[in-house]
Design a protein around this nucleic acid. Sequence first.
DNA 1: CTGAAAGCGCTTACAG
DNA 2: CTGAAAGCGCTTACAG
Lengths: 330, 330
Amino acid sequence: MSKRQPRIEEVSRIAGVSASTVSRFFNNPGVVADETARRIREAIDQVGYVPNLNAGSLASSRSRIIAVLVPDIAQSIFNDTVEAMIEELTAHGNSVMISLTGSDNSLLDRQIDAALSRRVDAIILTGVVTDAATRARLKNHATAVIETWALPDDPIQIAIGFSHFAVGEATARFVRERGYRRPHLVVPQSSRAIERANGFTAAWTARGDEAPTAQPVSSPSHFGQGRLAFRGLADMDPRPDVVVCGSDWIAQGLIVEANAAGIRVPDTLAVMGFGNLRLAGDMRPTITSIDIDGHQIARETIRALQRKAAGEVLPPRLPVDFRIIARESA
Amino acid sequence: MSKRQPRIEEVSRIAGVSASTVSRFFNNPGVVADETARRIREAIDQVGYVPNLNAGSLASSRSRIIAVLVPDIAQSIFNDTVEAMIEELTAHGNSVMISLTGSDNSLLDRQIDAALSRRVDAIILTGVVTDAATRARLKNHATAVIETWALPDDPIQIAIGFSHFAVGEATARFVRERGYRRPHLVVPQSSRAIERANGFTAAWTARGDEAPTAQPVSSPSHFGQGRLAFRGLADMDPRPDVVVCGSDWIAQGLIVEANAAGIRVPDTLAVMGFGNLRLAGDMRPTITSIDIDGHQIARETIRALQRKAAGEVLPPRLPVDFRIIARESA
DNA sequence: CTGAAAGCGCTTACAG
DNA sequence: CTGAAAGCGCTTACAG
């Protein structure tokens, strides 16, 4: 049960080389002779050697651990992006340390300390850090800090994402082009969703139209809020012709409620989502939504990390695409 | 930017004690004198010391890293459990290393190696490892291996979960008590869902009734399969009176399809889900489902780890509760 | 309650 | 292409 694991020294002895060479075999294979490599490989297989990366991290002062901090994971709009991030990072030889900061970010500081304790090569944040002290602390830290899913004016170090305000503007243009005239916004109370609502309102009123009506809901959003959103419509006169929802879950819940009340989507009421989750394409009617490319965010993050490690100076804001996916619901 | 981080030696010098004492302050605080602790605390604050846990892991041969291996995370039935697991583990001072094994488990061996490289204190698996070579390799490994969400006859080391067969049996009894007579099973092709279907069939036929009809769907399951499941019902004669779905997502999709076709749930067709996701309670009609207590699995896992660390010999199978949540849909 | 010393298992200039 | 030696930043018996 508790047999001690083999060390690099055992492998080197069996292969008839020094520990340095075995180390090079793992970390800089190009430099070791073919025949030597063969013998090392054999020795590794023979003893079942698995390198101790904690020792490696200490010796090289590079941990190859990346911390990914997310508000939650049970049902998060970030999950696609986080999955892509984990895939890409591990495929590139990193370990991913995941931490939950709570949907109110109350655990953020604690989780940052935990990440720093492991001497992670980078901290990847989903969502925006608003606390000034935390921002200041990370600003000049030796550890790379990457904010994703947003493009703040003044990132802590580097932000990889998109402007939620711009998403809102684009949504407003889309809604107008589709011929809708009385949009209603269902806005989860997160800074990002609020930014999108602001962008929508700015673009909508810029043409002289009256500001859209809006209804706040709690964040993170979920299916059940569709019911709330639908109830909110009952008293409105005139009734909106399109509801722009802060997430696909809300949109889905709203459609189910509308159907139960005998209201046809999109004929009587159009509905838009956000996030382009798989269910958006599967729902009946299919849900018009806005796609965020989680894999692109993940790839850009990897690339930024590599460029930074190579000593390059990076632009603080790396924009990533979003696109509106027109489907049946709006 | 790249200022070197302070080491324990700096703290000890400022506090006027040895490095050993500072180490004890962190790892065995009860043993250091109050006044000494006060001076150490001051020194820590002064220099902003954050211990290097990679060095600590190496020195103590205890990493306080736990690997959590999951098939996927974008939309997984395990997500509630995984979230609970991460919360509990980090609250107890562990770091959580997360890895994706793929829904076909094709990356499992690679991710196990990655975990062993970090000398994790435990590997927590969600789902069952079927590959014999992998099982054999982990069986006698010094690293703790915990299988969760299932209760196999012969766990690798320790299993914490419930019997899917028993869930199926309980579901059959529930369905019969509710007065349904022609159950139809929608079965994702995962070993767990198949076990539940087997349990259902066994309990159902034990009373002399004809075996339930069944339809396989791919795994992992998702909302869109509700459409598939509904189409599968069209040709059936007689039509089933209750559809037992492998997940709440399938149940939800099936209900949406049924409604679109003018079929009332549960009046004309009853539907059951599995997993008791939040949406089950929010759906219209609310979905009768089976609840798995992710927090209980997480807590039992922590407890097992602690008991094992204390040298206790644990029973190989630790059962965890499930319960049927009766709602409107069946 | 505290300190000096050895050691955890690697990596990396340096020299050849 | 390879090896010897120093060092990464901690922890932990051991002794007092």
